[in-house]
Write a protein that binds this DNA or RNA. Structure first.
Lengths: 142, 142
DNA sequence: CAGCATCCCTTCTGATACTG
DNA sequence: CAGTATCAGAAGGGATGCTG
């Protein structure tokens, strides 16, 4: 059981492994593997590569991400805020104004979510084609 | 790259856009934004960059992805097979043997899932730190 | 070994309605 | 505008038992 400090450090460095059920990274993976998370990060990150924060208001996000209910949008934003991926800024104007923006951490994930969205759009036809042929290859079908 | 505004409009209109609720790519995005999908693709794709298919048996997958129930594993594999991301090969040995492997389509997504898993593992500490400070920011920290 | 079927509980998610 | 609260239905997901 005796381990050197170097060994222990190396172990801690590779400590997180999403293949392990008990690993916290599994939960994190579950969180970011979410339709709304991907779309929110995509919306907030679009056009922000140049460094401009691209802050979006709550209603702007809701408009951009068609079909999202206020509940899910709020829930998603809250979890992202808690995890340090987005910032929430409240401006106490008369009709209160709330704007959201990506943090550096969020930006680092945005690239992936954008690719994910792009993949879904780019390969939609291929998947659709496969679904159409699937199931009839086995001769099954009543 | 010179495109008229009309051409660009037509192109955007025709393309899949996950921001639209009715767009099929929204459903596809929802499908691939799944914990088990990510882990299965990660498991099947590991070490397959050189072209070796890296086929895994059902039980091997189950062992690798700790904590997955047979139900979820089968369900995930079926959906991936239907969408043309993995192939399912049955070898009629006495104890029947079933192996799974990524298709080209699946391989194209594997890079993203691997990055996703890596992101979760790499930024776990940062997220954990943020969660710890979240909520107590208003009352000062300890 | 590799599933499928079933039960059953939990979580998620989407309307709807209401508030500061 | 930017949420919050509540409810009901849908889906997720585990445990168990059973096949080929």
């Amino acid at each position: 059981m005796t381990r050197t400090a170097a060994q222990r450090r190396a172990e801690e460095k590779a400590a997180y492994n999403a293949f392990f059920a008990a690993c916290p990274s599994r939960q994190l993976l579950d969180r970011i593997s979410d339709k709304w998370v991907v779309l929110v990060l995509c919306a907030l990150g679009e056009g922000a590569e140049d460094g401009s924060p691209r802050t979006l208001r709550y209603s702007e996000l809701a408009r951009r991400i068609a079909g999202v209910s206020p509940k899910m949008l709020t829930q998603t934003l809250r979890s992202l805020e808690q995890d340090g991926l987005v910032t929430r800024t409240v401006v106490p104007t008369v009709p209160v104004t709330v704007s959201y923006a990506l943090t550096d951490l969020g930006s680092s994930l945005h690239g992936l979510t954008r690719s994910l969205r792009a993949w879904a759009q780019d390969h939609m036809d291929a998947v659709l084609a496969h679904r159409a042929t699937a199931g009839r290859a086995a001769g099954g079908g009543s």
